[in-house]
Structures are given as C-alpha cells and as structure tokens.
Design a protein around this nucleic acid. Structure first.
Lengths: 336, 336
DNA sequence: GCAGGTAGCACAAACGTTTGCAATGGCTTT
DNA sequence: AAAGCCATTGCAAACGTTTGTGCTACCTGC
C-alpha cells in the first residue's frame, strides 16, 4: 500500500539506489534533473520513509530517549526544553517515556523499549532505578546519563546540582538573614538528600550552630511531605526558618504553617529548593535556591553526543533567588 | 557485536526460525527442552531483540505516540497517566514527543518522526496543529485523535470536555451562589474558547442577565493572561466573580486581584476551569469546574484501538468542585 | 502393517532501505 | 588517439527478524 523507494524508482525511471541517494541528499551522487524527477515522483506517490528499514541497515538510530518518572516533578519540562534545544540541531529526535518511580516493572518496560530500539542515548530524568534495571541498562552499549538525581552506585554518570552546595548555600543564606534555628524538610535518605543534609549541617557548624535532630524532617520532596514536616515542627516551632526539599514541599510547609496559625514569613521563613515557576505564583512568593534545570538538559545531550571520556559526574550552577518568603527572624527585626 | 538470533541459533544448535518462535512464545511450535536451550543461550549472549528488524517484517509497530505542546499544560500528566494505564495492558508502548504549540517546524518534525515510524496511533495533547501539519497527518493511514482541545475543522476526531457545558455549568454555579455580574477570563478565540463563551452567555441569558462585553477578557489560558484580564477589570471591578479559562489563569487573576488590593473571595470570587492539583495548593483553594483528564487519556487509547467507527467527537465528564475561592457576593451576604 | 496424523524443526523468502563496487559515457589531458 | 578522470547511475548484498511451507520421524488406530 504505502509507496516504497522501488515504486518511486519505477515511476522516475531510475534505480532504487539513486532514489535513496536523492532522498538522502547525498550531494554529488546524482544529476540535477534526475533529482527533480525523483522528488516529484516521491511527492506524487505520497512517499513516507520507513524508519525501521533505515535503522536496520544503518544500524544507527536518530532517537534520543528520555525516561521520566511518573510522579511529576514539575521541573521536568525545563530539563526537557534544554534537551530538545540541544538535540534538535544535532538532528536527534527526542522521545520521552514515562516510567513509574516506584513501579519496577514499568521501569523495566520503558527501558527495554528504548534498548531494543537501539536509541542513541538514554537520559534518565530524576528516576531512581531499581538495581535490576540499572544492571539492565549497564549491560547495553547505549550511553546513558542520570539527570537531576544520581544513583548511589558511584560510577553511574549523572548531571545534577552539587547537592552538598545546595544544602550549604541555602543554609548560609538563611544564616546570613539572621536565622540560627533552621529546619530542613522533605529531603530523602538517598544520596541527594544525604548530601543536602551534609551541606546544611556544615553551614550550621561553621556558623557555630549545633544542629538539632528534630530540625531535620525527612520526606520525599512532595507537597504532603512538606505538610507533614511542618506538622512535626508544630504551632510553636523551634525553628525560625525552614528549608524545603522542593518547591512543592515548600508550599506544603507554607500551607500547613497557615493551618497552624503561623504567618509566612512573619512567624516563619520558608525557602524552597528548585526555583520553578511555582515560586512566583504562590503567595507569598517563595525565596528559593534555584537549580539550572535547562542547563542540565543541555549538558545531558552534550555528554551523550561527546564521548564518554568526560568525567562521570558533572554539576550545573545554582543560585539563590530572593523573593518574599524569607525575612529576618523576629529577634533580629526592629519591629520588636 | 550485539547478538542476533542467528548467534543464538548456532549456540543452541537450532535454526533461527526456531529461536524466533521460542523467543516469541509461539506455543506449540517447539519442544520443551529446545526452548530451554534457546532461552539459556539467549541469556548467555545477552541477546536484545532488534525492534527495527521486527517492525520491518511484521509491518506493525507496538508504539503509540503522544504529541504534547511544549507550553506545559499542567494537566498533561493526568491525561498521560490515563493513556499509559490503558495502553499498557494492550501491549502498547507509549512514546511522547514535544512539539511547540507555536513552532510549526517543530510540530512537523515531531509528526514526521512518528509517521515514519509507522506508529499504531497518534494522540495530540492540547496541540493546535498548523493547517499544513494537519494535512500531513491526514495524508497517512495512521489513526489519530485530538485530546483536550479540538480543531476548527469539523471532521477531526477529538475527545474533549463539552466546552459549551463547561461554560454553561460553571456560570450556572456562580449564578446559583448569587453572582450576576460574572466575568469570563483568559479563554481563547479558538473553538474551545468560543464554546465556553457561548455556554457562559446562555447561562447568563437564562438567568435574565445581559452579558456586558467588558466582562469577557480573552486570553491564552496562561498565568499572564489571567493577570492581564484582572488588570483590565481593575481595582473596582464591575464583576463580582470571575471564571478563568484554566487553573493557571485563575491563579493569575487571584494574584493580580491581590495586587489591586482586592481580597479573594471576600471582594471577588474566582473560579477555575480544569481542577488540577494546583487548585488545592493555592491559597485560597480554588473552586473549579473540573475536567476528567485521566478519562480523556483512557478514551483516546480506546478509540485508537477500536475501529474508527465511533463518532469522531466524544466528551468526558465535568463537574464542579467547591473549594474556598467562591462565596456569595457582598450584596447577598448577611455581614453587610 | 499401513494410511493418516502430529510434533518438532529447518529452509528460504520477504520486509525497505543503504552503500560498496562496478559500469557507462563523455570529457580532458598529453 | 590513447589514457585517464569524473559525473552519474545500476547491481547486489546486507541489516535481523518473521512466517508459510515442507520435511522428517514418530505415533495412533484399525
């Protein structure tokens, strides 16, 4: 039914080989008027290239796969934008697959789909791969890189923020605004959370503040985790500021604080980690430690295109964006 | 390098045909111990199926393509969840492509990518296809369906909410709460916005209210569009309630209202169309006309799997979810 | 003891494309 | 005028898989 290169060859009175060369624009391999005839025939017949056939013979795909976890991290779009923008000029098509963060089976299926397609590279977008699936990924020759979060296993290539610095710099900023009793909420026990916690503690220590265990409320970066953390701090919180693991978590903290009768930032300062557009649309707007998600996407594609010679771990820039949710604690304010 | 079924055939001492049948589990075509030998050899060699070869010979893909516009509509995830949940049991892999809503070239590229891959079906997720691209899509034999928004062209299959009812029911709800002067903000001039506007006007008329032109502020469903609409209503708005085209737009309206010194809902009620999780995390929480996005995804896949015999247009359920952002207007309240 | 059936497997064609190699013919160079 | 070159094209193999057809050996039932 669908027209093939042979049909065009017949219609244009040339061989399939020539048709292939014309359609692929292999300059210098065909005459000008031949090209015209071929292209016209192709148009007439409504020819569509058969990617499967091409990939079979060339042994090479033009696809770059992005695997995203389903629990929608709201910064995924920014990373994907960066990926697209970089892949496009390199003549790569970006295809995105959703895998459950929790569901190992769905992860496996997404993975095998792209592996069997022999894509050019795989970008894993804040997905925590089950060990078996990581092994599966490693067993192929397809280059891959984790984005935004890295795996525990040391040699897995990843492009992330420097999470230790994330914890450190955010905490430093809060200290600098006069806070001492600072909470850290809704970061997990994986490597990302551990590093942020370590940076946070270091910043406190350097400022001569002994971190108290209750200031740290672990969680999974979700809105609910933020709520729970705030609930744990209570209506008379020991802390004057809370650093939340994500924008969503920060909003959870804020809303729960309000429920407890606390005003943000008058009674409690809140700072978010991520800095997506959510920070701007929420009231009060959220001061954040902002990550360069777009750059992560760009760097991810670059790395897949370049050779794997680059060091496996790479970080992108972070910076503090001041908005409304952080002010000096009561004790430091003149209005007391 | 990569092992093929021929390698397995050699290793297991059978023909490639048998290997293929074993690996495809074509029951009754091979002996039990043969199967064991083949599978073991495949495991040993780290065999990965070559999808390109399979698709070439079977002339059939197991992929279902979803094309999403880049301007991230925050309900896309829900639709995709519905798609995944339905596609998974049908043994379909879901691959997602981003196309710009504005960028015709990116649209075309996403489209040709999936067309040349001969996917089983194409789901277009709130994307407004340029006419040339719609023609391209139509020129293939691949079934497709628009989701969430439909095209002007009458015969394009689509699964959406009944947008007339969206406008009608939301307005009715506001009327019922005592509002008369009701604004409609940030819906576009395309078919979706037109229908909502028509439903809105009908509801007003039935209640004996003559809609005033200035009550309607068109826009593109974005946060900024919401802000602009509210700016147009001004600090002494003629309306007592605003129905916004999306959750994001509603938040834009609310924030701008606050900037103008208006309290929501005390001074102005705001109602959102969509009802995503944003409505719950914002302060005050947003009363919404909620769409069944998950169901849209489900219905979309069903339609592609079933034959095209079903009517081209199909709608999913809508309902009002009451939250905090709508109360009776001042004039109706006892506290005046 | 034989016709007919069946289980298990191999052969080979086919899918649509790319590409190394060879062939052709015209032109330039000496 | 022979030799060489270049532009243009065709031939045919190859990519890895699926599947219709045919073959062999064994079994069943009479």
């Amino acid at each position: 039914m669908a027209a093939t290169i042979k049909d065009i060859a017949k219609a244009a009175g040339v061989s399939p080989a020539t048709v292939s060369r014309v359609l692929a624009n292999k300059e210098g391999f065909f005459g000008a008027q031949t090209a015209v005839r071929v292209r016209e025939a192709a148009r007439q017949l409504g020819y569509r290239k058969n990617t499967a056939a091409t990939e079979l013979v060339t042994q090479r795909s033009h696809d770059l796969a992005v695997i995203v976890n389903a629990t929608q991290t709201n910064f995924a779009n920014q990373i994907i934008e960066g990926i697209q923008a970089t892949a496009f000029p390199a003549d790569l098509n970006v295809i995105i697959l959703y895998a459950g963060d929790a569901d190992e089976e769905r992860q496996r299926r997404a993975l095998t789909t792209v592996i069997e397609r022999a894509v050019r590279g795989i970008l894993l977008l804040s997905v925590n791969l089950a060990p078996a699936n990581l092994a599966l990924l490693r067993s192929t020759e397809i280059p891959y890189t984790f984005l935004s979060i890295s795996m525990q296993a040391p040699q897995t290539p990843a492009i992330t923020s420097d999470d230790w610095q994330v914890g450190y710099q955010a905490t430093q900023y809060l200290l600098q605004r006069g806070h001492q009793r600072i909470g850290l909420a809704a970061v997990d026990h994986q490597i990302t959370g551990q590093l942020r916690l370590a940076g946070y503690r270091q910043a406190l220590m350097e400022a001569g503040v002994r971190p108290v265990a209750a200031w740290f409320q672990a969680g999974d970066y979700s809105y609910a985790a933020g709520q729970q953390a705030m609930q744990a701090y209570g209506a008379q919180p020991a802390v004057t500021a809370v650093l939340a693991g994500s924008d969503m978590a920060a909003i959870g903290v804020m809303n729960q604080a309000r429920t407890l009768g606390l005003l943000v930032p008058a009674d409690l300062s809140v700072m978010a980690i991520d800095g997506t557009e959510l920070c701007d649309i929420v009231q009060p707007t959220l001061t954040s430690l902002t990550q360069s998600f777009y750059d992560m996407g760009v760097a991810g594609v670059r790395r897949l295109l370049a050779d794997q010679s680059t060091p496996p771990r790479e970080t992108t820039a972070i910076h503090v964006v001041e908005r409304e949710s952080v002010i000096a604690p009561r004790a430091h304010r003149s209005d007391i």
